[in-house]
Design a protein around this nucleic acid. Structure first.
Lengths: 314, 314
DNA sequence: ACCGGTTACGGAACCGGTTGCATGAGCCTG
DNA sequence: CAGGCTCATGCAACCGGTTCCGTAACCGGT
C-alpha cells in the first residue's frame, strides 16, 4: 500500500507539497501538480481514509436512519442518497431503528461520533425526540417537517387531495381513505388534504385505519370498504391498495376503483385508475444535497430550508 | 469532545495505561481498570474511530454489496448483517451496484481500501468477476456458491424440490415453474432440483421464464400458465407469485394453486397452499458471523466454509 | 538597485489512539 | 538474602495524512 510519503519521494517533493498538489492544486505550481499526480498514478496511490479523517476532524461518512428496510418506500430513498453521497466521495451507512422512540435516539447517539451528519426518516416519533437527535450533528429530515429543521418531503398530501378531486369529478359519491400507521406524520397531512378535498367536491368520505403499510392490511380493510358502499378508495400505501384489490376481487367485487402506482396500474392493464408516484430516489438525492450544503458551509445557524417535491398524479 | 488523554489525566494514569484499561483489561490492574472506566464514564468518552483505525490498520467497516434495494429479498439480509455488525462494534455500509459486471467490480474496487471485508450478493455475474472482486479483501458470498469461497446460502433448491414433491403427492399432474432472472445462480439450482423432483413424482413440468422478480412478471406469465393447463405453480419469487395469482383471479381462474410465503398465505386465508419461507435476516447474520471469523482469525488460508440454511416448507 | 508583496515549497507539529520496549516494584524460590 | 520472574505502568514511536509557519526565490515598481 503506497503512502503519500512514497508519492512525495517519487515526485521529488515533500509530503506537504504532495498533499497540496493532490488536494488543493491551486496552492502548488502546475508543473509540480502534474509530477505529483503522475507519481500517484504510477504507484496506484489511494489516500488512507482514516488518516485523512483524523487530520481533518471529519469522518466523511453520513448516516441515514430508517425505521425498517422491509418497506419499499424507504429503499429507493436510500439508493438516491447513496448515489449522491458517492458523488461527493462520502460514504453512507444505513442505520435501522425500530419505531420505539428510545431506540431511535439511541441509534443516533451511538452513531453521532462516527458521522458528519444525519438523514433522518422518522415517520412517527415525537418532535422532541427528533430535535434531541438532531442536536448532535447536522440533520436533514426526510418526509416529515418540523419547525426550524431542514427537511425534504414528497408533497403527497396535495396529490392525495387532487386524487379525491379527480374521483369527485368522475362522479364518485362515496370515497374511502384507508389510513396508514398510527402516529404517521404523512398520514395526518393526507387526512387533512383529503378531508378538505372531499368537502369541496361534495363527496361522502369514510376514514379507515390506522393500518400498518402491508398487503395484509389491505386484505383486512376489505370488509369495511364494502360496508361503506364506496366506489373509490384511496389507500395510504401501495401495499395496502394491492391487498385491498386482491381481497375485493376475491369476493367478486369489481366496481370499486383503488388508486395505486403507475407501475401497478400498467402491469395490470387497468383503465381509468389514477395513480400517484413518489420518486423516492429523488427524495433521497435532494435530502443528501441539502445535507451536503449544510456540511459544506458550516454556518453557525444554517438556514433551515424546506424542500417539497411535487408528486405527479396520472 | 473528550479524548483518551483527558481520561488518562482524570484517572491519574498515562495514555498507554488508559488505552489498555479500556481495550484490554487483562493487561491492567483491576483497580486501575475501574478507575479509568469511571473516568471515561464521567467524561462521556467515546473513542475516535478514525484514530483507532489509523493506529490499528483496520477500518472497522465492512461493506455489503447488493444489486438493488428494491427487491425485498435483500433488505432483511442487510438488516440481519447490520445487527450482527453492530454487536461487534463494526459499521456496515451498503453498496448498491447495478447488475453489470463491470460495475460490480468497480464498486468493490472503490470500496476495497475503506473496508475490512465484503459481504457479496452476486446473483448473476460470472465466477471470475466475483473471484477478482474477492481478491481484494476477505469476502463471504451470499446466496451463491463458488468453489473455494466461503458462502452462506438459503437452501431453497431443496425446498423447491420438496414443493414439487408435495404437489405430486396431492395429485397434481401438470406443474409450472415460473423462472427467475436470466443468469441467476439460484434459478439454476432450483431448476435442477425441480426437474429431478418432477421426474421422480411423475408429473409434467413446464418451465417458463426467465422473468425478473416483479409483480408484473407474474401478470405477464399468466397466459402461459393457463395455456399449460397446469393445476399448480411454483414461482421463483413471491412478487411473481402475487402477480400471477392476481392475474389468474382476474380472469376467473380459481383452480390453480400458486405456492407462496407463509405471510401471504395467512393474510389471504388460503387453504392447502404450500409456502416456502427464507429467513433473510438469518442469512445476513450467518454471513456476517462468517466474515467476522475470517477477519478475527486472519488465517493466511482461511478454510472456505459453506453454510447452508434450511428453508422450511409449510 | 532596493523594497514590499506574492508564490512555491519544506519542516514539523498535530489529529487521537495503539503498542513495543524499558523500568521498577513486588513475589517466589533456593 | 540474592537472583530471577511476573505484573503494572510509563515513555515514545508510530499509523498517514493535513496544515501552520517560516523561508527563499521571484515579481514588478520606483
Amino acid at each position: 500500500m503506497p503512502t503519500l510519503a512514497d508519492v512525495a519521494v517519487l515526485a521529488g517533493v515533500s509530503k506537504a507539497t504532495a498533499s497540496r498538489a493532490l488536494g488543493r492544486p491551486d496552492l502548488a505550481a502546475p508543473e509540480t501538480v502534474a509530477r505529483v499526480r503522475a507519481a500517484a498514478e504510477q504507484l496506484g496511490f489511494v489516500p488512507n481514509r482514516a488518516a485523512t479523517q483524523l487530520a481533518r476532524g471529519r469522518t466523511g461518512v453520513v448516516a441515514i436512519v430508517v425505521p425498517t428496510l422491509d418497506n419499499t418506500f424507504f429503499t429507493p430513498i436510500i439508493g438516491g442518497a447513496q448515489a449522491r453521497a458517492a458523488e461527493s466521495g462520502m460514504q453512507l451507512t444505513v442505520a435501522v431503528h425500530s419505531l420505539e422512540h428510545t431506540s431511535q435516539l439511541a441509534a443516533v447517539e451511538q452513531l453521532a461520533h462516527q458521522v458528519d451528519g444525519f438523514l433522518l426518516t422518522a415517520p412517527r416519533g415525537s418532535d422532541e425526540i427528533i430535535r434531541a437527535a438532531a442536536a448532535y450533528k447536522p440533520t436533514v429530515l426526510i418526509d416529515r417537517e418540523i419547525d426550524g429543521m431542514p427537511s425534504t418531503v414528497a408533497d403527497t398530501a396535495t396529490a392525495f387531495g387532487a386524487l379525491v378531486g379527480w374521483f369527485a369529478d368522475k362522479g364518485h359519491e362515496r370515497i374511502v381513505y384507508v389510513g396508514g400507521p398510527a402516529g404517521s406524520w404523512q398520514d395526518r397531512q393526507r387526512q387533512a388534504a383529503i378531508r378538505a378535498a372531499a368537502e369541496e367536491g361534495g363527496v361522502t368520505l369514510t376514514m379507515l385505519g390506522p393500518y400498518p403499510s402491508t398487503f395484509a392490511s389491505g386484505v383486512a380493510a376489505a370488509d369495511d370498504v364494502v360496508a361503506a358502499r364506496a366506489t373509490a378508495v384511496v389507500p395510504y400505501a401501495t401495499s395496502i391498495g394491492l391487498g385491498l384489490m386482491f381481497a375485493l376481487m376475491r369476493r367478486g367485487v369489481d366496481d370499486v376503483v383503488v388508486s395505486s402506482e403507475r407501475m401497478v396500474v400498467d402491469s395490470l392493464g387497468l383503465h381509468d385508475v389514477p395513480s400517484i408516484d413518489v420518486d423516492g430516489e429523488k427524495l433521497g438525492q435532494v435530502a443528501m444535497d441539502q445535507l451536503m450544503t449544510l456540511l459544506g458551509e458550516r454556518k453557525e445557524a444554517p438556514e433551515p430550508t424546506r424542500q417539497r417535491l411535487d408528486v405527479p398524479l396520472s
